[in-house]
Design a protein around this nucleic acid. Structure first.
Lengths: 145, 145
DNA sequence: TGCGTAATCGTAATATTTACGAATTGATGA
DNA sequence: TCATCAATTCGTAAATATTACGATTACGCA
């Protein structure tokens, strides 16, 4: 299932929502952009093909795409930007209890927010957190890091 | 060097800036809070002891503390919050090139933004990113993840 | 092609952050 | 201790970002 503009359009349509010119353009923007996009950037990029575009339309449709799981927010610097789908295939990172070895899946991946210089290419990563789980809290500290 | 209110006050003073009642209160807030604080939360917590407090004062002093390296911003959910110093002793995580094994230090630590349930305690973590560096980009993709 | 309603526009309201002159107050030296 | 002066704060407003809403438009369906 390629994550292109048509995929986005199909997702919107399958959920019973209408395909407007604005949403089609938005899908093309997200599918074609190599960078994450802020609402203001999206507004500027859409205003060319849709003069008189309302900010309401941009924000409303961003929420639609978020709800549908088509895009995700990334908090870069001090602003919120949006990008198509998860950056990598779905996966989880573990929280590992030093006492009971219980493994709990963390609900996020730090790589989603990473910005490397353009010339670098990220292929894979490893992220593990160690500590004491709910049941084992209260044990003595281990050496930090 | 304990990271308490007096430490913050000392840092401000050593840089030749004045110790005002507002800054003293701000230092106590950051030193005493178990959570990160948003500007609005800070304003509300300070307004009790300083009626008529100006937002300008809050934002200006947040910038002062940021510049001094006393606090750091964390982007939690959709808002910016601030917390005292780095969460852990200073350390770096590596970007490792799959081609030339070059190790580049990443300028951030994902743990800074982690929010675990209150009953969990994080002791240490591991974060490594693998890919192709500036010089080795253009090689074929490896299997993702 | 015509209908019903979801979506958009245009505008304004709300929230957040920054800016600035007048007044205040902390730090310094006599 | 007191006077001085500039850094800091206050009070208010401007700038920016986000959300809200009635009137209008246009998409999807029969």
């Amino acid at each position: 299932m390629a994550r292109d503009a048509e995929w986005i359009i199909r997702v919107i349509s399958e959920r019973g929502m209408r395909i407007t010119e604005q949403r089609r353009k938005l899908a093309e923007l997200f599918a074609g952009s190599p960078t994450f996009l802020s609402p203001k950037e999206i507004y500027r990029m859409m205003d060319g093909s849709h003069p008189g575009l309302s900010f309401d339309t941009v924000y409303r449709n961003l929420k639609v795409l978020l709800t549908l799981g088509v895009i995700q927010p990334y908090y870069i610097g001090e602003e919120v930007k949006y990008g198509i789908g998860p950056a990598l295939p779905e996966h989880r990172h573990p929280f590992i209890c030093l006492e009971c070895s219980r493994k709990i899946e963390l609900p996020f991946c730090p790589v989603e927010a990473i910005e490397l210089p353009a010339s670098f290419r990220m292929i894979r990563h490893r992220f593990e957190v160690y500590g004491y789980c709910q049941d084992c809290s209260g044990k003595e500290d281990a050496a930090l890091c």
